[in-house]
Simulated assay, not measured.
Amino acid sequence: MKPEFIKMALILGLLSCVGPFAIDMYLPAMPAMAEGFGVPVAASQLTLMSFFIAFGVCQLFYGPASDMFGRKPPLYFGLALFGITSVACAFAPSIEWLIALRFVQGVGAASVMSIPRAIIRDRYTGTEATRLMTTVMLVISISPMLAPLVGSALMAPFGWPAVFIAVAVAIAVSLVLTVTLLPETLKPADRVPFQFGAMMRAFATLFRDPGYMGLTLIGGMGMASFFAFLATASFLYTGHYGLTPTQFSLAFALNALGFFTSSQFAANLGERFGSVAVVKWAVGGFATGASLLCALFAAGFDSFPLLVGMLLVTNSFLGLVIPTSMVLSLDDHGPIAGTAAALGGTLQMVLGALAIAIVSRVFDGSPLPLLATIATCALIALALSVLTLRGAVRAAAQA
């Protein structure tokens, strides 16, 4: 790989890592936080859902803003807001304040979700873009593998507020890297002046594109299944299976390992078989694995090794689906890449928040509600792939 390619992958990976870092490091602290505030599990899960809602919806503003002002100024604003509210979260006096602050925190965090995707599209398309996206995901893999362990280590001596201070430090490092090392990839001549009508027409163009919408929703259902897991994993692993916070962190890292390992093969498989074929077959594997896991637990096979092992396999298929579908969805929308990335991110985050809301209402401490939610997301993704990945969409994606 060229040095410039590696530099971009590291910087964009670290930027993209900050949002998940604020989620993954927080997961081991959720049971202790609920106990500390004297609130039920569902109330603590609202702090996660409020973050996801803002994280998703506000990408609609960052995307067009990055098309108008360049990629870096909106990143500066978002990272600054993200860092300030992270510190404020550490001193939240009640669960209500924490829910509200997590929402504002998500407003800032939304900048690091959509803008790095647009930066990738500014520089690369096709399999090169997929390769950069998967390299970025390799850097992001640090978060689910290490963040829960760091959160557990900080929580033991300092309590759950220390998690938010650590997030603020990570954001400060990201802001310094953005200012000093990240180039501006959108030239002034290519920027789009703000016109509300033009922005609405761009959104309308995207909504009318069946390929873009289908690919976005396929990736969105995969992400929704993972968000459902995020919302319940700490309670399931520590409550139902009796794991300590540190043991939960290790099990969570193992579940994430399959996703990020398989994502590194997405570009090579796309070059050999075609990106659309990779998405179709990977979605089929995701749906098969998730449905089988749900059926086994519904039949009474409640086993922690079985759960972790099958989730590892299922997430491995997701590691092929999500980066490839992201790149394919942007390929035909270079002039409005920021807006397309923002709308895609918003739709996917809203689906994630909806999955959290559903699984929070039905979660009873056992694995089955979570597994049923994951299987449902997988089967919807399979139906979407059958409906959209054919004909003109296949030809355009493989051109």
Results as ranks from 00 to 15, higher is better:
G284L: 10
F265E: 03
L230M: 14
F229S: 01
S262A: 15
F273E: 05
M310L: 14
G319P: 05
V278E: 04
A231Y: 04
D331E: 14
G284K: 03
G309V: 01
V279E: 03
P305D: 13
A290Y: 06
A277R: 13
G300L: 04
P323H: 04
K280H: 03
L257K: 07
N315P: 03
S316Y: 11
A267M: 01
L320Q: 08
T244A: 01
L296E: 05
F227E: 09
V283L: 06
G309I: 00
T314F: 11
A267E: 04
L293C: 12
A267Q: 07
V313H: 09
A256N: 07
V327S: 15
L296T: 10
F259T: 01
K280R: 14
T261L: 15
F260P: 01
A266D: 02
A253M: 03
L330Q: 14
S325E: 13
A282R: 06
I322C: 11
N268Y: 06
L293T: 11
F235H: 01
A231R: 01
Y241C: 01
A228V: 09
S225K: 07
M310I: 12
A228S: 15
F265L: 14
S225M: 14
F304I: 08
F248K: 00
S225C: 14
D331T: 05
F273Y: 13
W281V: 11
V278N: 07
S275N: 11
Q247G: 12
T261F: 15
A290N: 04
H240C: 05
Y241S: 01
V276K: 12
Y237G: 00
S249I: 00
G319R: 06
D331M: 10
F273N: 06
L306N: 12
H333Q: 06
S234L: 04
G319M: 00
F297E: 10
D332I: 02
V308Q: 00
V308M: 03
R272M: 08
A251F: 08
G319Q: 10
S303K: 08
F260L: 00
F226K: 02
E271C: 09
A298S: 14
S249T: 00
F260C: 05
L296K: 05
A256E: 06
M326I: 12
L328A: 05
G242Y: 05
F260Y: 15
L307E: 00
D302A: 13
L230S: 09
L311F: 13
R272A: 13
N315H: 08
A233K: 01
F265I: 10
A233E: 03
A224F: 08
V313L: 15
A287V: 03
A266L: 02
L307A: 11
F265N: 10
F304T: 08
Q247S: 10
G300E: 07
F229H: 15
V308H: 00
V283M: 04
A251S: 09
F226E: 10
F297A: 08
I322L: 15
G289W: 06
L230C: 12
L230I: 14
G242L: 03
N255F: 06
A231E: 01
